[in-house]
Design a protein around this nucleic acid. Structure first.
Lengths: 327, 327
DNA sequence: CACACACCTGGAAGCGCTACCACCACAATC
DNA sequence: GATTGTGGTGGTAGCGCTTCCAGGTGTGTG
């Protein structure tokens, strides 16, 4: 539009165009310090005219603030990053960061080697930290430098605030629904044992079946549809009279349903199946599940670090039972 | 580990620890310029010892190179960003960028106002550009500054290279498969008209049905399951004898199947349904679809800008027919 | 033995920005 | 009339890094 070989304007250009010093221009843009209405006005118009956007690198350099949010995902191996849930988290954080001029990065932190996190946070480019699949060991390794700029999705600590899903409540609602609709031999395909949020679901399941005097039937899964597919067969092999299967996630449940249907077992007539998460497809395939606003949760987490909350609070988002066709 | 209040090391710290000047240390790390083996060695060990990671902001500042990749997604409204496909793209780009010390940002560019892209690229923080849902107008607005640092997913131009899916080939394979299995009244739920890749699919469909002397039956969709759900009913209302529905995406197909099943129409016995993309769930629900390595495609795109390819080449990734239960 | 020419090195400038400081008006106070 | 503000301003020092440049050493050549 303007000149041929456009070079993004610098603050100097703005100052010159506005006929003020760089300092004044900076003060106007930063909003702090004094500036006369005239100066303010002239700088504003110069900014508009030149399409000036501050250079985040320069800003980060002088503030020592870093330039991107790091999403650290704990897991046994790098394939955790292949999880669509991580995709969603990364994208949601990116969307929250973009208006603040921050980028996002993702990295896997091996479960067996949490201190690897330190190497990642030694990077001054890291402005903040979002922990996914958090373990207690990881929380202790969040450096002081990032205090108030770190948040955990899942469990928190005295220094690291967290946002979390009410997995226990969600699972309780699901299992109770199964019980209320006459299911008495309820099995569960769980998540990885080391994952706090998965454990809360499992504990809720156990508490409820125990309370009802039913046996607990657990097969360890990993959130994936594939694992659900295999786990379904294992459940029915070990406990053939099972009449309900609780999936730790929607993907798990979808895998379970796939296997059951392939084996000629009717859902929900023979076996009821439930999921957890309420992914978009759950509605399409009529999956009974627990719904929680994942995007909202992640966005809340990102917002916490962007706005630099200091209070190590835990925000728990509710989980709502959604009854559809599968149970 | 080391000192209590750890402050990430700077190049000065490294130089001091290694007993050389900052310049020498920088030269060793940059790999360019001369440096004696001794100096090289000492700097290396100092780096390891201190856990030094270069400050990307300072680096970007001196190089004028920017600090994050921008993913610009064209669409009629900001909800395009809610698409899981965008999630996946953002996450994949983030994964590719992270090792390079770059972050990612996402922004919507209104279809009706492509020049809004200029405001985004005026930000010196932008090191590179990935265009999603690209339109020709957008390609022309890629600034010179980003030449060789921009890539389009979909259509490209003389200056902007692209990576693309062989939508035409994939759709041809699908429609041919439907024809070969006896379907003669094949309808299609299309994508938005302005989207080049969707149009290629539609054109392939038209060409094939035309060639076979069949009528084209099109309902405009938008890639979403919801729209597929609604579109399925519209198809059957307008052409009750339809015996196959080609979905522009897996989500569309899933929506179509959901509606058909809800209406008591058997899939594939009464109506065959096909998708496009081969999302993870497609296998679970036995959807016949065309598969293409989306993650690999996005990664290829990201790699192109990270490695600053200059040749405006177009890389087309093949699309493979995956026959499963739904058609 | 002077010279060129390699290799190697530290000093210093500067990327674009913010923040501190010194300064200057002008008004209000003693 | 000297003093203390108060609102406004520009100069300048850096943030951590790269890169250019001047100045070293040491080898090989005329």
């Amino acid at each position: 539009m303007t000149t041929a070989a456009r070079r993004p304007a610098t603050l100097d250009d703005v100052a010159r165009a506005a006929g003020v010093s760089r300092s004044t221009a900076s003060r106007v843009l930063g909003g702090n310090g004094f500036a006369s209405p005239t100066a303010r006005e002239r700088v504003r118009t110069a900014v508009d005219l030149l399409g000036y956007v501050p250079n985040p690198a320069a800003r980060a350099l002088v503030h020592g603030s870093g330039v991107r949010l790091l999403i650290a995902v704990a897991g046994t191996d790098p394939t955790v990053l292949d999880d669509p849930y991580v995709d969603q988290a990364v994208a949601a954080v990116a969307r929250a960061c973009t208006p603040h001029g921050l980028g996002v990065a993702v990295q896997w932190v091996p479960l067996a080697e949490p201190e690897r996190l330190t190497r990642l946070t030694d990077d001054r480019g890291v402005a903040g930290l979002v922990l996914l699949n958090t373990t207690p060991a990881l929380l202790d390794l969040v450096p002081r430098r990032l205090a108030g700029r770190a948040v955990s999705i899942g469990i928190g600590s005295a220094t690291v605030p967290s946002v979390d899903i009410d997995n226990g409540g969600g699972t309780t609602a699901i299992v109770r629904h199964l019980y209320d609709t006459g299911r008495r031999r309820i099995a569960m395909v769980t998540g990885p044992r080391w994952l706090a949020c998965a454990n809360r679901s499992v504990r809720a399941y156990r508490a409820l079946v125990h309370e009802a005097g039913l046996p607990a039937r657990e097969v360890v899964g990993d959130f994936s549809a594939n694992r659900g597919y295999a786990a379904a067969r294992e459940v029915l092999r070990r406990w053939p009279d099972t009449d309900a299967i609780v999936g730790i996630s929607d993907a798990t449940a979808l895998g379970v349903i796939g296997r059951l249907r392939a084996d000629g077992i009717r859902v929900p007539d023979d076996v009821a199946v439930t999921g957890f998460d309420d992914i978009p497809l759950a509605a399409t395939v009529a999956l009974t599940t627990a719904s929680h606003p994942v995007r909202q949760i992640i966005t809340a987490a990102a917002t916490m670090v962007l706005e630099q909350r200091t209070a190590p609070e835990t925000t728990v988002f509710p989980s709502a039972l959604v009854v559809r066709g599968s149970a």
